[in-house]
């Protein structure tokens, strides 16, 4: 079996490594597909759905997450079709109105083209991306935190609500959390249902262009710039 496969992402012919995901291959080539729950070296769970792409096959295109899609020979991927950008913007809008205090998520939202969110702001302090849970489990084999509950009740917690012995207070979970990466003092003061505008990223980021990397804070947090 060949180690490499040829595929096309956004019109560029690239060489993927068998077994890697479309997202990893794209990032390696500097094609930035927005993503949140994905982190290099952690198992992908496809939770945030930001990394969706159009997978074009036999003339039909299917929306799927690039972090869970393995590269295949001859694959054609459009990561920035109009449809995908629209859908991605709508997902980012859901995320940023759910957790508007996260600078990282504001960055993503802006980059995905969210300008005027159409939902009332809420103030969740977790978007359930699972980066902390997986880092704790996969990097440190500590299993000190996990997801508990279903649906609206789902949240991250210690097993049996008590800090287990296995937690060595490494703080990896906090470092990787999109909520804690450069927290802003937030728009969520009572009566303020809009972005406060204090975030430099919000006022200074350029208009989003396909493939344009804004060097967002989230990226720094998980070392995505290393790819570029």
């Amino acid at each position: 079996m060949h180690q490499n496969v040829d595929l096309v992402i956004d019109g560029s012919k690239i060489s993927g490594r068998r077994g890697e995901t479309v997202l990893d291959a794209a990032l390696r080539y500097g094609i930035c597909i927005p993503h949140l729950c994905h982190m290099p070296t952690l198992t992908d769970i496809g939770a945030c759905r930001l990394c969706i792409v159009d997978h074009i096959k036999n003339g039909r295109s299917k929306v799927t997450t690039s972090c869970t899609l393995l590269v295949q020979e001859g694959m054609v991927i459009d990561a920035n079709s109009e449809r995908v950008r629209g859908l991605r913007r709508n997902i980012a809008e859901l995320l940023v109105t759910q957790a508007p205090n996260s600078r990282a998520i504001q960055d993503i939202a802006l980059r995905c083209g969210v300008t005027e969110p159409r939902y009332e702001f809420r103030s969740d302090d977790c978007v359930l991306c699972g980066r902390c849970v997986r880092a704790c489990k996969e990097h440190y084999q500590a299993h000190a935190i996990g997801f508990v509950g279903r649906g609206q009740e789902r949240h991250v917690e210690y097993p049996f609500r008590e800090k287990p012995e296995s937690c060595i207070m490494c703080r990896a979970c906090v470092t990787l959390c999109p909520m804690s990466i450069t927290p802003c003092d937030g728009p969520m003061k009572s009566g303020e249902g809009y972005f406060c505008g204090k975030c430099a990223s919000l006022t200074q980021a350029p208009q989003y262009e396909a493939g344009d990397c804004t060097r967002c804070d989230l990226g720094e947090g998980f070392d995505c710039s290393g790819h570029l």
Partner: peptide, 18 residues
């Protein structure tokens, strides 16, 4: 459906809620 969503992915957990 909101009650029965597992809560894992954003479109279903937050989208259906909205």
């Amino acid at each position: 459906l909101q009650d029965e969503s597992c809560g894992k992915c954003v479109p279903c957990r937050i989208g259906v809620d909205r």
